[in-house]
Simulated assay, not measured.
Amino acid sequence: MTVLALPSPPTSITLQLLLVGIWLGIVIGSAELLKRLITTDPEITRKVVHIGTGNVILLAWWLDVPTWVGIAASVIFSIVTLLSYRYPILSSVSGVGRKSLGTFFYALSIGILIAWFWPLKLPQYAAIGILTMTWGDGLAALIGQRFGRHPYQVWGMKKSWEGSLSMAGVSCLIIYGILWITQGNITATWISAVAISVIVSTLEAFSKWGIDNLTVPIASAALGFVFNEFWLT
């Protein structure tokens, strides 16, 4: 059952790419402006890009961009992010010489989920995966760094309960919201949202080298798909 109907999107590939490009330009430009005028903390600007860029999946969903466009964009940005670890490209996204490959995994996960769910005509699960990563993981990092008062360690990594609980809470709301919009089954959507948010928050806590940008979106999308297409229906 569809609860929310969106206006018809433009069908021209050129216009679709233009709209996506404008959105990404706004996000990256805002991060650069933030870095120059408000804060010198590179982690904040990276998270602004991390969160803002992920919302492109909603634009791609609304535009119904062809599968090949999403995959091609993922490949291009994956290459750019790998180069940015060595050269000063997109400094607001990934710093030169960083040990984490999180930005690369981020771009890669978008391509994988589009390749998986676009041909199935189930873009909501790709959106669940990407938005859980961008908003859940992104806000968890910011809240944990700023307000984390109850730390714990996993494999030598410093985490906080405030950050982990933020990850679980934000992920739960995102998953529930998307499933409610697309299927409207209140009981099933809450069961899925709570279960998946707990699992992916645990994955995030145990992830190193930025691989949570791959494991979290893949796991949340896959679990949402299995729960709602096979188990809870």
Rank of each mutant, 00 (worst) to 15 (best):
P7F: 01
L17G: 02
G156R: 04
T132Y: 07
I28W: 12
L131P: 03
I79Q: 00
L15E: 09
N185A: 14
T14N: 01
D64H: 09
A219M: 08
V20I: 15
I44R: 06
V226M: 14
S207W: 09
F225A: 10
I211Y: 05
S192L: 04
T39M: 02
I130H: 00
R46W: 10
L19N: 08
Y85S: 06
V194T: 11
S160W: 02
Y152R: 08
P119D: 09
E43W: 02
P7D: 01
A205G: 10
L139G: 01
S12I: 05
I44Y: 01
W61V: 09
S207Q: 07
G210Y: 06
I218N: 02
L131I: 09
I174A: 09
L24D: 02
V93K: 01
R149F: 04
K208H: 14
V3Q: 11
Y106Q: 02
K208G: 14
D137E: 05
I76P: 00
W118F: 13
I186N: 10
T2D: 08
H50A: 04
E32L: 13
I38W: 06
I191H: 03
V69N: 05
L17I: 13
I130R: 01
W209H: 13
V154D: 08
L173E: 02
G148Q: 04
I112F: 10
L83I: 15
I196E: 06
I89V: 15
W190D: 04
W116E: 06
A205N: 08
M1L: 12
Y87H: 12
G21K: 05
Y106S: 02
F227Y: 14
Q16I: 00
V48W: 13
Y152I: 09
P123H: 06
V154C: 09
L33T: 12
G184Y: 04
A140L: 10
S197P: 04
G138R: 01
L142S: 10
G54F: 02
A107E: 04
W68K: 03
L165P: 02
G25F: 08
F225M: 10
W161T: 09
L108M: 11
T187C: 00
A221V: 04
E43C: 03
G136I: 05
Y152K: 04
Q145L: 12
P10N: 08
A115G: 12
I110K: 00
F147W: 15
G169F: 12
P217G: 07
S94K: 12
L139M: 14
D41M: 00
A60Y: 08
I114Q: 09
Y152T: 12
K208E: 15
W61H: 11
K158M: 08
L214F: 15
L142N: 05
K47D: 11
T11K: 13
I175S: 06
Q16A: 12
I89N: 00
L82M: 14
L214H: 06
Y106L: 03
W231K: 06
K35W: 11
L24H: 11
L101Q: 10
W23M: 08
P88Q: 11
L59V: 13
W135R: 00
Y152E: 03
A140E: 05
N213Y: 01
V93S: 01
V154N: 03
I178G: 03
L179N: 14
Q16T: 03
P119H: 03
F105Y: 15
N228L: 11
W155D: 14
E43N: 12
I196K: 01
H150M: 03
Q16W: 00
K47W: 07
I22Q: 03
A222D: 03
V226A: 14
R46S: 07
V49I: 08
R46N: 09
V226T: 13
